[in-house]
Design a protein around this nucleic acid. Structure first.
Lengths: 210, 210, 210, 210
DNA sequence: GATGAATGAGGGTTCATTCAT
DNA sequence: AATGAATGAACCCTCATTCAT
């Protein structure tokens, strides 16, 4: 039970580590060159392995793309911690400034855009994106409806739905903005958000103090 | 001088017409299949000419992409009529519902996203995108600062800059949303915008009636 | 009508010539190396063209294989001229000695064997082979049933069917023999055939004189 | 000396057993998929060992193929029992109906064909095939020359050579037929053979009764 | 100006073989 | 003796680009 198990565990761990190396290398390549321009050979090189080995861990290039997408969206979801009081304007600004996909917890804007475009044509990708998209929307709605004492905003459902949609539009708009104008003054962004977000979070009521 | 001129003019006109045919055909192909999946052969077919001929009018595929972007952004700029009173929420909703790249003045959302991702890698594309991006921003700022009697909103410059940024975030967020959730209820979108936009257009002051 | 037609005719002729060049080159490669060991690059080289060009004339390698099979079987059928009195023993011997696939009208034995094996796994190939196989069998039966004055052998149908089967077995057995013992003494082969074929052609009756 | 010997014997026995496992597994795979389509990984799996281990017992894939051929032809030779009176027509028909490579003494027809084609290209295979081929021919000739009281047919050598050749042609023709028309009516085959074989076995004399 | 046949580098992928463990 | 992860050359095929006509 122990020896066999131990070996199996170790093998599984190695497998997982290899998959991680591949995904990480692929993500770097995709960000730099795009999904289609990044060749398997280059990905293999970036992962420090031979091209053939990749296929022991992934069926094909599309599977890698899907895995990256799922992993990224998962992280995105985990990242949004709606269960503690947060300064949304500050956090969004920080994401804008820092989040260019260089560290593994950030969704690269270029990747997200290409990914969304790809979802238009690949039904499997579309399904994955939709799944996480609706998860996020539901989480936002719940958060907006929850009482203030629970870190929420106490909106009625109808208002919460409207506000959640606006928040998603702003999140995604910021991703596009990152690609178009990466030099955008963070102070201006934060000022804008700080002025308007409270109004959104209040469901359209006159902004409360704070 | 005149005959020669006339011939030259005619030749130039023909050249321009040919370029236009190619761009139009390429745009259709790109929308259907994406930048990389659309082959030159198919574009040539769609343009009703031979593949070889395209290279008399464009250096290569990337040049076509750049030309489409420039042309499209130009149209976009012309399209934004900020000189008449408009119901922004209604117009944005209409764009969301109708704007899937079917008419020639709309870039398909997928294309716009792919294009923005590409701008991350191709400096020439980036420059074009930046140029039009800032044009639009300036136009928005002017519009927001202009007096209400001139169809504007009479905001001071600082507020106008904040509001313009937010509007761009929303515009672009909507493009992402179109690819992710094309079935989004337009009524919900319009309600959200109608509740929020007046507040933005008022520069963050309590929403005026209407 | 004429100019356009002429051009189209010329184009069609060229297309057919190119297909022929490819098939001929592929056949040489397949005979030398087998279906799977012959690479497209080598075939292209043998055909004096680039690998990519082959795909303008054939969908893929399998299509080339099928075309060769069909072409070869067609020639085989045409080759069997059952409408004149023939010295079957002599002709079969001649085929054995000469027919090693070097000239285009001969089915290479190696090719026929590999082809038959391949038919076991590829349903499309199986269908093609079956089609020509049954054609040949029917032709043999007709020939055996036809009156002697018409170059036939006047057998009743039941006997004709038996004899046709035996002839096919002998034909195909000779193909195998060519690969196994290409040095087989043609005199021995001809003597064997000359002794036994009359018996077969007579439907099992005591061999007639001649 | 004895202990060492014993160990060595045991080791040799194990080596032989391993080789046998590999050959048997490979044969199954080759029959199902053909020589080239059967991968070493699948063969290893079928043999219940790792791919690497196979190379301890065989130099490479071609060596396995050669070993299978040799083993199979050896069995084939042993199988031919020409020392008892036999109903050749019945036995050949039975081989046709049953012999599709399912039992270990039968090479599948497809395999035999592929193998014969390969002999055209690989001199080592050619040599093996030739060796057993001539063995079989000699055995047939001996059988045909032997007196009837010894289960033979009492033909003079010249006639025996002719008849042996014809028998081989028929044997091999039947293998091809199995791949091309596996649904061939066994009754027709048996009738054909029964009418013709006695004539062959009699060396071309009018068929004796029975 | 216009064609479309031709090119050939590069794409993703497979698989016989090796070697550290 | 045995493993199976790793290699890398070669596979089939695509497509942006060129050029003889």
């Amino acid at each position: 039970m122990s020896a066999e198990r131990a070996k199996s565990d170790k093998a599984l761990a190695r497998t997982e580590a290899q998959r991680e190396r591949i995904l990480s290398a692929a993500q770097r390549c995709f960000i730099e060159q795009g999904f289609h321009a990044a060749g398997m050979a280059r990905i293999a090189e970036a992962a420090g392995m031979s091209p053939g080995l990749i296929y022991r861990y992934f069926d094909n290039k599309a599977a890698i793309i899907r895995a990256i997408i799922a992993r990224q969206l998962e992280r995105l979801n985990q990242d949004i911690s709606l269960h503690r009081p947060i300064d949304l304007a500050a956090e969004m600004t920080a994401k804008f400034v820092g989040g260019h996909g260089c560290d593994r917890n950030d969704l690269s804007p270029a990747l997200l855009l290409e990914l969304s475009a790809e979802a238009t044509r690949d039904p499997e990708i579309h399904a994955v994106v939709r799944h996480f998209d609706q998860n996020l929307r539901d989480a936002l709605v719940q958060w907006l409806m929850r009482g203030k004492h629970a870190g929420g905003h106490g909106l009625p459902e109808a208002r919460a739905r409207e506000a959640a949609l606006l928040l998603q539009l702003l999140f995604e708009g910021m991703k596009v903005r990152q690609t178009r104008d990466p030099t955008l003054d963070p102070a201006l962004l934060e000022a804008s958000l700080r002025r308007f977000l409270p109004f959104v979070l209040a469901g359209g009521a006159p902004a409360p103090a704070g």
